[in-house]
Amino acid sequence: MSMRALALRSALAGAALLTLAGGAVVAQAALTKVPAEVQAGTYALDSGHGKITWSVDHLGFSTYYGQFVNVKAELKLDPANPANSSLTATIPLTDVNPADDGLKRHLQTADFFDTANHPTATFVSRSVTVDADDANEATVVGDLTLRGVTKPVTIEVEFNQAGPSMGGVYKAGFDGEATIKRSDFGINYALPAVGDEVKLHLEGEFVKQ
Rank of each mutant, 00 (worst) to 15 (best):
A190M: 02
P164S: 06
M166T: 14
V140K: 00
D196P: 14
M166P: 01
V169Y: 14
V198W: 12
A172L: 10
G142S: 02
T179S: 11
E137M: 03
G163I: 12
G142W: 01
A135N: 11
A193N: 11
A193L: 09
P152C: 07
V149N: 10
T179G: 03
V169Q: 13
G142M: 00
S165Q: 13
R147E: 02
K199E: 14
V140C: 00
D196W: 07
D131G: 12
V153S: 10
A178E: 13
N136F: 11
Q161P: 04
S165D: 15
N188R: 15
K181G: 04
T150H: 09
A138P: 09
D196A: 08
I155D: 13
P192E: 00
D184G: 11
S183C: 05
N188D: 09
R182H: 07
K199Y: 10
T139A: 12
I155F: 10
G167K: 03
D196K: 02
T150P: 08
V198H: 07
D131F: 09
L144E: 09
V128D: 03
K199T: 15
D134I: 08
K171W: 08
V149R: 05
V198D: 00
D196I: 00
F159D: 06
E197V: 06
G195P: 06
F159W: 11
E158M: 11
A178N: 15
T129E: 05
D175V: 14
I187N: 05
N188C: 03
Y189N: 05
E197H: 01
V149Y: 00
P192Y: 02
G167A: 05
I155L: 15
L146S: 03
I180C: 12
A190S: 01
G167F: 07
I180W: 14
D134V: 01
E177A: 04
S183E: 13
P164W: 01
A178R: 12
G186R: 13
K199P: 04
D133L: 13
D175Y: 15
A172D: 03
G163Y: 14
K151L: 06
V141I: 07
I180T: 02
I187L: 02
D196F: 02
E158T: 15
E158F: 06
F159H: 10
G142V: 07
G148Q: 04
A162H: 13
G186S: 03
G176Q: 10
N136V: 08
F185W: 12
V198K: 05
Y170M: 05
Q161G: 02
L146K: 06
T150A: 01
V128L: 04
T150C: 02
D131A: 13
V194R: 00
S183V: 09
G173V: 14
D133Y: 04
A193W: 13
V198I: 11
S165C: 04
Q161K: 15
V149S: 09
N160P: 09
L144K: 04
D134N: 08
P192Q: 09
V128Q: 08
Q161D: 06
I187F: 07
G168R: 14
D143L: 07
A190H: 00
T179H: 15
I155Y: 11
V140T: 04
